[in-house]
Amino acid sequence: MYAPSPPLSMLPDALRDTLEERLDATIESVASVRGGCIANACRLETDAAPFFLKYGPNEVARTFPGEAAGLKALGAADSPLVVPSVHDTVPATKARPGALVMEWINPGREGRRFWDRFGEGLAALHRHTADAYGFDRDNFIGRLPQSNEWTDDWPAFFREQRLAPQADMARERNRWHDGWEAALAALYRRLPDILPKSPEPSVLHGDLWAGNYMVTAVGAPALVDPATYYGHREADLAMSELFGGYDDRFYDAYRSAWGLAPDYETRRDVYNLYHLINHLNLFGGGYAAQVEDVLRPFA
C-alpha cells in the first residue's frame, strides 16, 4: 500500500529550510517515488548527494525514530544484506512536517543468485543476537505502536507484547468477534508448549513482507521499512510467507544456512496471527476470516 505521491511543487518551505541546514547541503530538486507507505516519499537531489526522504505530519513522523533505530540495528549486524544508512530524523512541529532522511539506493533487477543471497543473508542477519527479547525502544508496526520491553521468556513476550495489545486494539475498534475470546484464551494457555521458551534472540526485520525489500542496482537484496526487535527468527520467516511468500530458492538457501526445528508450520501461523490482527486493526474486516482461521484450532 502506498501513500499518494507528494506534489512536484516541492517540499513545504519550512521543511526545505530545515533539511538544508541539517544536511549542510542545497536541495536542487525533489522527485516523487513509490514507497514510504504511510509517509510521502521522495528522491532528494542535493549538491552533496542524493537522499531518500520520507516526511509527514506528527502521526506519521512519530514512527521515524523507531524506524531509524531499526535500520541502524540491522546495519550493525554482520550480514551481506544491504541496509540504507540513516542521515537524520526531523521531528514534526506546527510549522513543518517531520522527516526521515536516508541513503539513496539505486534500484535494479534481480541477479541470478538474488534469492539464494537473500536467504543466506537473512540467516546471517539472524546470527546477530542479544541477551533477551525486545529492543532498546518501542516502535511501530505500520501506524500502530509496538511494545519492545526486554523480556527473558519468549512465549510471555509474544503473548504480552505482540498478541495481547493487538487484540485489545481490535476490541476498542469493534473489530474483534466475541466468539474468538475462548480460542484466544486457549492459545495463550498453550503458547508455552507451541513456542520455544528461550530461542536465540535474533535481530529481526519485524515486518518482512514482499514490499519491504528491494533490489539494488547490482542485483543484491536490501532491507527497508523495518519494525525491528530481537526475537525468534522464525517470526521473520513466517511474515515473509503471509502474503504470497518469496521464491522457493530463498527458503531453501535459508534452511541450508540455518535449519529450522520441526513443526515450524504450526508456529508460523501463530506468529502471523500478530500481523493478521494488526491488519484487521489497520484495514478492517477483510482480515477477520484469516484471523478466525488461525484461532479455530484452539476453539
Results as ranks from 00 to 15, higher is better:
Leu295Ala: 06
Ala124Arg: 07
Leu276Ile: 03
Gly142Phe: 12
Trp180Phe: 03
Trp115Leu: 02
Ala222Val: 09
Glu120Pro: 00
Ala132Gln: 09
Val291Phe: 05
Tyr213Asp: 09
Asp178Ser: 11
Gly219Ile: 02
Glu120Ser: 10
Leu11Ile: 05
Leu19Gln: 10
Phe157Leu: 06
Gly285Thr: 14
Leu44Pro: 12
Ile194Cys: 13
Gln146Arg: 09
Phe283Gly: 04
Ala164Gln: 14
Leu23Ala: 07
Asp78Arg: 01
Ala289Phe: 05
Glu59Cys: 02
Glu172Ile: 02
Pro97Thr: 15
Gly108Lys: 06
Glu181Asp: 14
Val215Phe: 12
Val30Thr: 15
Leu282Ala: 13
Arg143Thr: 13
Glu172Gln: 10
Tyr213Leu: 02
Gly70Ala: 07
Tyr264Lys: 07
Val270Pro: 01
His279Val: 01
Pro192Thr: 12
His232Asp: 15
Asp225Lys: 02
Gln166Arg: 12
Glu21Ala: 15
Ala227Val: 04
Phe114Met: 09
Gly111Gln: 02
Ile194Val: 15
Tyr274Gln: 07
His126Asn: 08
Arg22Trp: 06
Ala185Cys: 08
Gly108Arg: 07
Val101Glu: 04
Lys94Thr: 15
Ile141Gln: 11
Ala167Gly: 00
Phe114Lys: 11
Ser85Val: 00
Met214Ser: 07
Asp152Glu: 14
His232Tyr: 12
Tyr274Val: 01
Tyr188Ser: 04
Ile38Arg: 08
Ser5Ala: 15
Arg112Thr: 12
Ala210Cys: 06
Tyr271Met: 03
Glu45Gln: 15
Pro196Cys: 04
Leu163Ala: 10
Gly245Leu: 00
Asn212Leu: 06
Leu81Asp: 00
Tyr254His: 02
Asp252Cys: 01
Ala49Arg: 15
Tyr264Thr: 01
Gly121Ala: 09
Pro7Ile: 05
Ala238Asn: 05
Ala68Pro: 07
Val82Met: 03
Gln166Leu: 04
Glu110Thr: 15
Ile277Met: 11
Arg267Asp: 01
Val294Ser: 05
Ala235Asp: 09
Val270Asn: 03
Gln290Val: 00
Asp152Pro: 12
Asp17Lys: 14
Glu28Val: 10
Asn174Ser: 13
Met1Pro: 10
Asp116Ile: 12
Gly231Ala: 13
Glu103Trp: 00
Ala76Met: 00
His232Thr: 08
Gln166Thr: 07
Gly108Gln: 04
Asp116Tyr: 10
Ser9Met: 01
Leu71Arg: 01
Pro65Gln: 05
Thr63Lys: 01
Gly134His: 08
Glu241Lys: 10
Asn272Gly: 04
Ala31Ser: 15
Ala99Gly: 07
Thr266Glu: 14
Ala167His: 03
Glu59Thr: 15
Thr228Gln: 03
Met239Lys: 05
Leu44Lys: 12
Ala253Arg: 03
Asp138Cys: 03
